[in-house]
Design a protein around this nucleic acid. Structure first.
Lengths: 333, 333
DNA sequence: TTGAAAGCGGTACCAA
DNA sequence: TTGGTACCGCTTTCAA
């Protein structure tokens, strides 16, 4: 009814000082029980709602953390966001999100915006390219940063990610152990660090097994399902591989329908990154789960730890990928 | 290097008053060009970053808006979040997100948290159940609310959603016009308002065409792909329908694999809600696009409008669903 | 065109 | 156990 009431009103109405009202608000034990009860009653009565903005100003920083990703709409990132939000909200920490769309310039603007808001810390899945500018921002504003999913060249900060190289290596090992020798690779893009590491993991592991990775079997530039599907069909049209490694969910989303459409569900497949329907198809799609939730959780936890103790040494945390056998990766040549 | 500098430092260094520095910061035209330039130079030199928290305190409210959904990880909501964020960020507005997980109690806590943060406004995809408590919160704190995707019983607020009833009606009309008479329904849950409206749209439209909607063809309780797949297989096992209406993406994600797994891609299908792979499968899946992006955009725009003019009348905006013909909905019986 | 000073709503240092 | 009061960093009314 009364619109809004502030702590001073509460104090006045309860007949105590502002300081005491503040103590009650913060559960300070050094308040007489009777006083505390009285103040609390008044708070309820007046529909008092503490102003977190004022508190933040006083504290010098906002309690919220910022999360900057390429696109919230992307399945991997949306799961990541969900995990971060879940973890953060356990400590009552709010999460501000922002999408860069992969544009470094936009990323910079968004990060600066967050810093201006005095977020307590930042979780960033960086765009490609140099990030030394971020180093400056971080040290000037003193905002802790935790990198998520991929490293940022030029920036020395905590990192939580998977071992991309090991992931595709595992995929190759798995397929080879099932007798495959002619294995194709479908990847999303050749310019990003993580994608390069995946390709390297594939090529090197093939070599380790004494197997060739000829150019006609390596399609490392399929940034969306459509091109991945086309690449798959063209792989099938030539001297077809007996198995395929799909190095990203967005690739699998094209490879799988192409395989089904061509009636070639006999071609083995291991995908990096889980996706909807993977477990319901026939055969189920064997994947190395790119654990978005685990990454998000670990990153949020790491940031929380750093907020509690800013002098922590910079670390890189590797989240293991687990092989989920569903059938497609266990097909024999 | 210098840690952090505040506006007072800038003013002092530039040899002007705090007031003038503030004017420069806010692009107030009533500042001499020379002065403005000098102050700007100092700002750069000192790596000055305006403190948005302080500004918010002064303004009485935060410039950010809050977005409360069931789960950011859900494809529909993640796209919605992305659209809201995109739209909001065009005005430089930040977005705070929170997931309820469908729990009304948690929703309440999260909303209260947002109100305490003094967000400028709230976008809420409400959980099921009564929301009159929100009415209280809204009028006490004066925080404008725009409901997204579904109405909240007990709360009179702006709403941006699709016409669920019309959507399934369209699906039925489309299938009937292609000669189908034995049409099954797979829906996600019977308790939520939107889902009920979809079911009603199906049943009533079938009746309008003089067609029965017998219980054995109506599976309205498939909250996840797994159960939807099972329901589909059981539909196929009996006297199979020639067409299916899948009333939610999470249902389609089960119906589609089941159809393909049983080799029954001859059964027509119209889904409500688009999904990855829908356009790449054979046949492509005909869907009524549940336009998350359009809804998010419209909702964010509506909130912005209400922030600009709080006295706007409460409205309900209906976002049209469009039929995307890809093949599965155009199959003949 | 510029400046002094009073807040915005809390928190926290010192006394009492 | 309490209370006065000086801030946090910025915006803004009122003079000059």
């Amino acid at each position: 009814m009364s619109g809004k009431s502030i702590l001073r009103d509460v104090a006045q109405t309860a007949g105590v000082s502002l300081r005491t009202a503040s103590r009650v608000l913060n559960d300070d034990p050094k308040v007489a029980d009777a006083t505390r009860e009285r103040v609390r009653a008044v708070m309820r009565e007046l529909h008092y709602t503490p102003d977190l903005v004022a508190r933040s100003l006083r504290a010098g920083r906002d309690a919220a953390v910022g999360l900057v990703v390429e696109s919230v709409a992307d399945p991997f990132f949306s799961e990541l966001v969900a995990a971060v939000e879940r973890t953060a909200s356990r400590d009552g920490t709010s999460v501000l999100i922002a999408s860069t769309g992969g544009d470094p310039e936009r990323e910079r603007v968004l990060v600066e915006q967050m810093v201006r808001r005095r977020v307590a810390g930042l979780l960033i899945a960086p765009t490609a390219g140099d990030h030394s500018w971020l180093q400056t921002v971080v040290s000037t504003a003193g905002t802790p940063v935790v990198l998520v999913d991929r490293a940022a060249p030029g920036l020395d900060a905590d990192l939580v990610a998977i071992d991309d190289h090991a992931a595709t290596a595992t995929a190759v090992d798995h397929l080879v152990s099932h007798g495959h020798r002619r294995i194709a690779y479908v990847g999303d893009r050749p310019d990003v660090g993580t994608s390069r590491a995946r390709l390297a993991g594939f090529v090197e592991t093939m070599a380790r097994h004494g197997l060739p990775a000829p150019a006609e079997l390596v399609r490392a530039d399929c940034p969306d399902p459509r091109t991945a599907a086309a690449a798959t069909r063209s792989l099938l049209a030539g001297q077809a591989p007996t198995a395929i490694v799909s190095a990203a969910t967005r690739c699998s989303l094209g490879v799988v329908p192409a395989l089904h459409g061509e009636g070639r569900t006999d071609v083995a497949l291991v995908g990096l990154g889980d996706f909807a329907m993977a477990d319901i198809l026939t055969p189920g799609v064997t994947v190395l789960d790119h654990p978005a939730a685990a990454i998000g959780h670990a990153a949020a936890a790491r940031l929380a730890a750093r907020l509690a103790d800013p002098d922590l040494p910079v670390t890189t945390e590797c989240i293991p990928v687990t092989l989920v056998r569903r059938g497609s990766g266990e097909l024999l040549p």
